[in-house]
Protein backbone atom coordinates (compact mmCIF):
# COMPACT_ATOMS: atom_id res chain seq x y z
CA UNK A 1 0.00 0.00 0.00
CA UNK A 2 2.27 2.79 1.24
CA UNK A 3 4.91 3.41 -1.41
CA UNK A 4 8.49 2.63 -0.41
CA UNK A 5 10.36 5.81 -1.24
CA UNK A 6 12.92 5.26 1.51
CA UNK A 7 15.05 2.82 -0.44
CA UNK A 8 15.64 5.48 -3.12
CA UNK A 9 16.50 8.30 -0.75
CA UNK A 10 19.92 8.75 0.75
CA UNK A 11 19.87 8.09 4.49
CA UNK A 12 19.48 11.15 6.70
CA UNK A 13 18.70 13.57 3.86
CA UNK A 14 15.06 14.29 4.78
CA UNK A 15 13.46 16.67 5.52
CA UNK A 16 14.50 18.35 2.27
CA UNK A 17 15.26 22.05 1.85
CA UNK A 18 12.09 22.97 -0.06
CA UNK A 19 9.51 25.32 1.47
CA UNK A 20 6.17 24.11 2.86
CA UNK A 21 3.89 23.28 -0.06
CA UNK A 22 6.59 23.46 -2.76
CA UNK A 23 5.72 21.04 -5.54
CA UNK A 24 9.29 19.88 -6.12
CA UNK A 25 8.83 17.18 -3.49
CA UNK A 26 5.78 15.86 -5.36
CA UNK A 27 7.84 15.72 -8.55
CA UNK A 28 10.70 13.95 -6.77
CA UNK A 29 8.28 11.28 -5.56
CA UNK A 30 6.99 10.89 -9.11
CA UNK A 31 10.55 10.56 -10.40
CA UNK A 32 11.31 7.84 -7.84
CA UNK A 33 8.19 5.90 -8.88
CA UNK A 34 9.12 6.27 -12.54
CA UNK A 35 12.67 5.04 -11.88
CA UNK A 36 11.18 2.04 -10.08
CA UNK A 37 8.74 1.39 -12.94
CA UNK A 38 11.68 1.34 -15.33
CA UNK A 39 13.67 -0.81 -12.88
CA UNK A 40 16.66 1.49 -13.16
CA UNK A 41 19.87 0.21 -11.63
CA UNK A 42 20.86 3.26 -9.60
CA UNK A 43 24.58 2.51 -10.04
CA UNK A 44 24.05 2.95 -13.72
CA UNK A 45 21.84 6.03 -13.45
CA UNK A 46 23.16 9.58 -13.50
CA UNK A 47 20.90 12.36 -12.25
CA UNK A 48 22.24 15.73 -13.32
CA UNK A 49 21.04 19.23 -12.47
CA UNK A 50 22.02 22.89 -12.65
CA UNK A 51 21.42 25.45 -9.91
CA UNK A 52 18.24 26.50 -8.17
CA UNK A 53 15.65 24.97 -5.88
CA UNK A 54 14.66 22.24 -8.34
CA UNK A 55 18.32 21.49 -9.04
CA UNK A 56 18.80 20.41 -5.43
CA UNK A 57 16.77 17.29 -6.24
CA UNK A 58 19.64 14.92 -7.22
CA UNK A 59 21.32 15.22 -3.82
CA UNK A 60 18.46 13.36 -2.16
CA UNK A 61 18.47 10.38 -4.47
CA UNK A 62 20.67 7.32 -4.18
CA UNK A 63 22.34 7.26 -7.61
CA UNK A 64 25.27 8.88 -9.41
CA UNK A 65 24.26 12.47 -8.84
CA UNK A 66 25.78 15.59 -10.32
CA UNK A 67 24.76 19.05 -9.13
CA UNK A 68 26.51 21.40 -11.55
CA UNK A 69 26.54 25.14 -12.31
CA UNK A 70 23.61 27.38 -13.21
CA UNK A 71 22.04 26.27 -16.48
CA UNK A 72 24.71 23.73 -17.34
CA UNK A 73 22.94 20.51 -16.37
CA UNK A 74 22.08 19.43 -19.92
CA UNK A 75 25.66 20.05 -21.12
CA UNK A 76 27.24 18.06 -18.27
CA UNK A 77 24.65 15.33 -18.87
CA UNK A 78 25.60 15.27 -22.55
CA UNK A 79 29.21 14.57 -21.59
CA UNK A 80 28.18 11.77 -19.22
CA UNK A 81 25.89 10.15 -21.79
CA UNK A 82 28.35 10.48 -24.68
CA UNK A 83 31.20 9.00 -22.67
CA UNK A 84 29.08 6.18 -21.21
CA UNK A 85 25.96 5.61 -23.36
CA UNK A 86 25.03 2.53 -21.34
CA UNK A 87 24.11 4.80 -18.41
CA UNK A 88 20.57 6.12 -17.99
CA UNK A 89 20.80 9.89 -17.76
CA UNK A 90 18.16 12.02 -16.11
CA UNK A 91 18.35 15.78 -16.00
CA UNK A 92 16.32 17.97 -13.71
CA UNK A 93 16.01 21.62 -12.91
CA UNK A 94 13.82 24.66 -12.98
CA UNK A 95 12.48 27.06 -15.61
CA UNK A 96 15.08 29.79 -15.15
CA UNK A 97 17.96 27.33 -15.00
CA UNK A 98 16.80 25.40 -18.06
CA UNK A 99 15.48 28.09 -20.38
CA UNK A 100 17.29 31.32 -19.45
CA UNK A 101 20.93 30.81 -18.48
CA UNK A 102 20.81 27.22 -19.72
CA UNK A 103 18.65 27.88 -22.78
CA UNK A 104 21.40 27.23 -25.27
CA UNK A 105 22.34 23.87 -23.73
CA UNK A 106 18.64 22.96 -23.49
CA UNK A 107 17.81 23.55 -27.15
CA UNK A 108 20.96 21.87 -28.42
CA UNK A 109 20.44 18.79 -26.27
CA UNK A 110 16.96 18.65 -27.84
CA UNK A 111 18.40 19.15 -31.33
CA UNK A 112 20.93 16.32 -30.95
CA UNK A 113 18.16 14.03 -29.70
CA UNK A 114 20.55 12.53 -27.19
CA UNK A 115 18.97 9.82 -25.06
CA UNK A 116 18.16 11.50 -21.77
CA UNK A 117 15.09 12.47 -19.79
CA UNK A 118 14.85 16.07 -18.68
CA UNK A 119 12.35 16.75 -15.90
CA UNK A 120 11.83 20.49 -15.99
CA UNK A 121 10.00 21.87 -12.97
CA UNK A 122 8.38 25.07 -14.16
CA UNK A 123 7.26 27.11 -11.16
CA UNK A 124 7.25 30.40 -13.10
CA UNK A 125 9.89 32.11 -10.95
CA UNK A 126 13.47 32.14 -9.67
CA UNK A 127 12.75 30.74 -6.22
CA UNK A 128 16.16 30.28 -4.65
CA UNK A 129 17.24 33.88 -5.15
CA UNK A 130 13.97 35.16 -3.73
CA UNK A 131 11.44 35.47 -6.55
CA UNK A 132 12.83 37.31 -9.56
CA UNK A 133 10.95 36.87 -12.85
CA UNK A 134 12.00 34.05 -15.16
CA UNK A 135 11.33 33.47 -18.88
CA UNK A 136 8.22 31.61 -17.71
CA UNK A 137 6.75 34.21 -15.36
CA UNK A 138 3.36 35.19 -16.84
CA UNK A 139 3.22 38.62 -18.45
CA UNK A 140 1.83 41.08 -15.94
CA UNK A 141 2.74 38.97 -12.91
CA UNK A 142 4.52 40.44 -9.93
CA UNK A 143 8.03 39.29 -9.10
CA UNK A 144 10.65 40.92 -6.91
CA UNK A 145 12.16 42.46 -10.05
CA UNK A 146 8.86 43.21 -11.80
CA UNK A 147 7.22 45.34 -9.11
CA UNK A 148 4.93 46.99 -11.72
CA UNK A 149 3.99 43.74 -13.43
CA UNK A 150 6.12 41.63 -15.76
CA UNK A 151 6.56 43.35 -19.15
CA UNK A 152 8.21 40.25 -20.70
CA UNK A 153 6.63 37.64 -22.93
CA UNK A 154 6.65 34.01 -21.85
CA UNK A 155 8.41 30.89 -23.12
CA UNK A 156 6.23 27.88 -23.81
CA UNK A 157 8.83 25.31 -22.76
CA UNK A 158 7.16 22.33 -24.38
CA UNK A 159 6.78 24.14 -27.71
CA UNK A 160 10.41 25.26 -27.43
CA UNK A 161 11.47 21.65 -26.91
CA UNK A 162 9.40 20.40 -29.84
CA UNK A 163 10.74 23.18 -32.07
CA UNK A 164 14.30 22.41 -31.04
CA UNK A 165 13.98 18.76 -31.95
CA UNK A 166 13.20 16.78 -28.78
CA UNK A 167 11.42 13.56 -29.72
CA UNK A 168 9.28 13.03 -26.62
CA UNK A 169 7.64 16.06 -25.05
CA UNK A 170 5.04 15.88 -22.30
CA UNK A 171 3.52 18.23 -19.78
CA UNK A 172 1.72 17.75 -16.51
CA UNK A 173 1.41 19.54 -13.18
CA UNK A 174 2.31 18.96 -9.55
CA UNK A 175 -1.42 18.56 -8.92
CA UNK A 176 -1.48 15.44 -11.13
CA UNK A 177 0.93 13.13 -9.27
CA UNK A 178 -0.03 9.91 -11.00
CA UNK A 179 0.57 11.47 -14.39
CA UNK A 180 4.04 12.66 -13.30
CA UNK A 181 5.47 9.18 -12.87
CA UNK A 182 3.62 7.81 -15.88
CA UNK A 183 5.06 10.48 -18.18
CA UNK A 184 8.59 10.36 -16.73
CA UNK A 185 8.61 6.56 -17.13
CA UNK A 186 7.53 6.96 -20.76
CA UNK A 187 10.30 9.51 -21.18
CA UNK A 188 12.93 7.20 -19.71
CA UNK A 189 11.81 4.36 -21.98
CA UNK A 190 11.82 6.63 -25.04
CA UNK A 191 15.10 6.43 -26.98
CA UNK A 192 16.05 10.07 -27.51
CA UNK A 193 15.61 13.41 -25.83
CA UNK A 194 12.54 13.45 -23.57
CA UNK A 195 11.30 16.63 -21.97
CA UNK A 196 8.79 16.33 -19.14
CA UNK A 197 7.59 19.79 -18.15
CA UNK A 198 5.92 19.76 -14.76
CA UNK A 199 4.03 22.94 -13.93
CA UNK A 200 4.78 23.47 -10.32
CA UNK A 201 3.91 25.82 -7.48
CA UNK A 202 6.15 28.20 -5.59
CA UNK A 203 3.91 29.48 -2.79
CA UNK A 204 6.75 31.36 -1.11
CA UNK A 205 8.06 33.63 -3.86
CA UNK A 206 5.39 33.48 -6.56
CA UNK A 207 2.07 32.66 -4.93
CA UNK A 208 2.05 35.25 -2.21
CA UNK A 209 2.91 38.04 -4.62
CA UNK A 210 0.26 37.04 -7.14
CA UNK A 211 -3.01 36.78 -5.22
CA UNK A 212 -2.80 33.11 -4.35
CA UNK A 213 -3.88 33.05 -0.73
CA UNK A 214 -2.29 29.68 -0.09
CA UNK A 215 -0.56 26.73 -1.65
CA UNK A 216 -4.00 25.11 -1.90
CA UNK A 217 -5.12 27.95 -4.18
CA UNK A 218 -2.11 27.30 -6.38
CA UNK A 219 -2.71 23.56 -6.57
CA UNK A 220 -6.37 24.16 -7.40
CA UNK A 221 -5.33 26.65 -10.07
CA UNK A 222 -3.03 24.05 -11.66
CA UNK A 223 -5.82 21.47 -11.59
CA UNK A 224 -8.54 23.80 -12.87
CA UNK A 225 -6.52 25.14 -15.80
CA UNK A 226 -5.13 21.85 -17.08
CA UNK A 227 -6.68 20.34 -20.16
CA UNK A 228 -5.66 16.90 -21.31
CA UNK A 229 -4.49 16.75 -24.94
CA UNK A 230 -7.17 14.12 -25.45
CA UNK A 231 -9.95 16.45 -24.29
CA UNK A 232 -8.67 19.56 -26.04
CA UNK A 233 -9.85 18.76 -29.60
CA UNK A 234 -13.45 18.73 -28.36
CA UNK A 235 -13.12 22.18 -26.82
CA UNK A 236 -13.63 25.60 -28.40
CA UNK A 237 -10.89 28.18 -28.67
CA UNK A 238 -12.73 30.19 -26.06
CA UNK A 239 -12.78 27.29 -23.64
CA UNK A 240 -9.06 26.70 -24.19
CA UNK A 241 -8.12 30.33 -23.48
CA UNK A 242 -5.52 30.49 -20.69
CA UNK A 243 -5.43 26.70 -20.27
CA UNK A 244 -2.37 24.46 -20.45
CA UNK A 245 -2.40 21.20 -22.31
CA UNK A 246 -1.21 18.14 -20.42
CA UNK A 247 -0.20 14.66 -21.49
CA UNK A 248 2.09 13.55 -24.30
CA UNK A 249 2.32 16.57 -26.59
CA UNK A 250 4.76 15.17 -29.12
CA UNK A 251 6.43 11.88 -29.92
CA UNK A 252 8.72 10.87 -32.77
CA UNK A 253 10.23 7.40 -32.73
CA UNK A 254 11.90 7.70 -36.15
CA UNK A 255 14.53 10.36 -35.63
CA UNK A 256 17.94 8.77 -34.88
CA UNK A 257 19.34 9.09 -31.39
CA UNK A 258 22.67 10.90 -30.97
CA UNK A 259 24.80 8.21 -29.29
CA UNK A 260 23.67 5.70 -31.91
CA UNK A 261 24.63 8.18 -34.60
CA UNK A 262 28.06 8.51 -33.02
CA UNK A 263 28.38 4.72 -32.79
CA UNK A 264 28.08 4.78 -36.59
CA UNK A 265 30.83 7.41 -36.73
CA UNK A 266 33.07 5.05 -34.72
CA UNK A 267 32.25 2.19 -37.09
CA UNK A 268 33.12 4.31 -40.13
CA UNK A 269 36.34 5.59 -38.57
CA UNK A 270 37.47 2.10 -37.61
CA UNK A 271 36.71 0.56 -40.99
CA UNK A 272 38.38 3.37 -42.97
Amino acid sequence: MAYDYDKSIRPGKLPHIWCPGCGHGIVMKGLIRAMDTCELDRKNTAIVSGIGCASRLPGYLDACTLHTAHGRGAAFATGVKMAKPEMTVICCGGDGDGTAIGGNHFIHACRRNIDMTYVLMNNFIYGMTGGQFSPCTPTGAIASTTPYGNPDQVFDISKLAIGAGATFVARTTAAHPREIDKLIAQGIKHKGMSIIEVLDDCPTTYGRRNKFRSVIDMMKHLKANSVSVKAAPKMTAEQLEGKFLTGVLFEDTEKPEYCEQYANVIKKAQSA
Binding site: T68, R72, A75, A77, V80, A83, K268, Q270
Partner: peptide
Protein backbone atom coordinates in the same frame (compact mmCIF):
# COMPACT_ATOMS: atom_id res chain seq x y z
CA UNK B 1 36.60 7.44 -32.94
CA UNK B 2 39.35 5.20 -34.31
CA UNK B 3 40.32 4.32 -30.73
CA UNK B 4 36.73 4.11 -29.50
CA UNK B 5 36.87 7.62 -28.06
CA UNK B 6 34.25 10.32 -28.42
CA UNK B 7 34.41 13.72 -30.05
CA UNK B 8 31.65 16.24 -29.60
CA UNK B 9 31.39 19.78 -30.87
CA UNK B 10 29.21 21.53 -28.34
CA UNK B 11 26.93 24.56 -28.71
CA UNK B 12 29.37 26.90 -26.96
CA UNK B 13 32.58 27.03 -24.95
CA UNK B 14 30.79 26.67 -21.61
CA UNK B 15 28.90 23.62 -22.82
CA UNK B 16 32.18 22.14 -24.07
CA UNK B 17 33.77 22.50 -20.65
CA UNK B 18 30.64 21.01 -19.03
CA UNK B 19 30.70 17.99 -21.35
CA UNK B 20 34.41 17.46 -20.63
CA UNK B 21 33.80 17.38 -16.86
CA UNK B 22 30.75 15.13 -17.25
CA UNK B 23 32.72 12.71 -19.43
CA UNK B 24 35.67 12.72 -17.03
CA UNK B 25 33.37 11.68 -14.18
CA UNK B 26 32.62 8.47 -16.08
Amino acid sequence: PKVGGKFIQMEDEIGAMAAVIGASLT
